[in-house]
């Protein structure tokens, strides 16, 4: 009883902070604070998505940055063609979010279907290595795209547009991100507690038991992998719009590592934990990098300590039992 009330209080408090961030940022006159909150919201979407397979499916994908990068580049490349007037495969392009965003997500889903099909032929440490290797392939392909800026990346003239909603206003864009974060998290929670989620979690706990109950593991894992990739791609789409800049770094191996760190820091298999993990991680990164240019010398060991001792993450105690 105590913990369930506390849980509610923490969730409500967190939600309040997310919703109130623009007002808290205003009096301090700092656009930086709103930017920080927005980055947290975007990373949180990626972290929740990764938690779906990492925490509930025990699929350690070390390559999720490829979907973050692809989502971003899909937005960037369409914007590039729309702006320059050069048609893209005969299409003159569009700036409408309702067209570009689904397109980007479909691209991520396709990539995930291919990568997932190959990677899921293995498990354990090979799965980690293979997802990492495929992400590196995407990274190098992005670097080699000279017409889209190669190494330097691509600047976007403006954000995508939505009917009735002005995404160019920072506060409005922030609230769109928050709405998507809440919607996506609710969707993932639904999946976790669904009939599909029951099987997915059973496969994590005992593959042998599940197979002997009649479950074919592959389609369940592949489906979860693709859904997770779509969420991470959505984060990439939002990032491209937030920063109005995409570069191969979005798909770098270190980005995949960051996502994993955020999920473990927040609490594996809790969905809400990774949101807190994103907040702490991004804020810590910001504070440390203001303090010293050698902030990695502190951040690195923090990650190592989290891995050694923080088995349950920030939310572990609060949301101790995994859903289900």
């Amino acid at each position: 009883m105590m913990t369930s009330r506390l849980r509610l209080a923490v969730v409500a408090g967190g939600l309040f902070l997310l919703l109130a961030a623009p007002f808290l940022a205003q009096p301090t006159g700092s656009a930086g604070l709103l930017g920080l909150a927005n980055r947290i919201a975007i990373y949180a979407i990626a972290a929740v998505s990764l938690d779906l397979i990492l925490g509930y499916g025990a699929l350690v994908s070390f390559g999720h940055a490829m979907f973050f990068g692809l989502g971003g580049y899909a937005v960037g490349i369409v914007a590039f063609h729309t702006g320059s007037g050069e048609p893209l495969l005969g299409w003159s392009g569009s700036n409408a979010a309702l067209i570009v965003w689904p397109l980007a997500l479909v691209a991520c889903a396709l990539l995930a279907a291919i990568v997932g099909t190959l990677s899921l032929k293995t498990s354990g440490v090979q799965f980690i290595m293979i997802t990492l290797a495929f992400a590196q392939m995407v990274f190098f392909v992005l670097v080699s795209l000279q017409s889209y800026g190669g190494d330097d990346g691509l600047l976007l003239d403006r954000r995508n547009t939505l009917p009735f909603i002005d995404l160019s206003r920072p506060t409005t864009f922030y609230y769109v991100c928050i709405a998507l974060l809440i919607g996506w998290t609710a969707f993932c929670a639904r999946i976790v507690n669904s009939r599909f989620g029951l099987v997915l979690q059973a496969l994590r706990q005992s593959e042998r038991r599940s197979i002997n109950l009649g479950v074919d593991p592959f389609p369940f894992r592949l489906t979860a992998f693709v859904i997770s990739a779509i969420g991470t791609g959505l984060a990439g789409v939002l990032w491209a719009n937030y920063a109005r800049f995409v570069s191969p770094d979005m798909a770098a191996w270190s980005k995949s590592g960051e996502f994993i760190a955020i999920v473990v820091l927040g609490g594996l298999g809790t969905l809400l934990g990774p949101i807190a993990g994103a907040a702490v991680f991004i804020a810590l990164e910001q504070i440390l990098s203001i303090w010293t240019e050698h902030w990695m010398i502190v951040m690195g060991p923090i990650l190592t300590l989290v891995a050694l001792f923080g088995r349950r993450g920030l939310a572990g105690r609060l949301f101790g039992e995994r859903n289900g």
Partner: peptide, 17 residues
């Protein structure tokens, strides 16, 4: 879980068993 997987498990992502 055993009851759910009689036919191999469901891809229903909405209803809670």
């Amino acid at each position: 879980l055993s009851i759910e997987t009689r036919g191999g498990g469901s891809f229903d992502m909405v209803s809670n068993p």
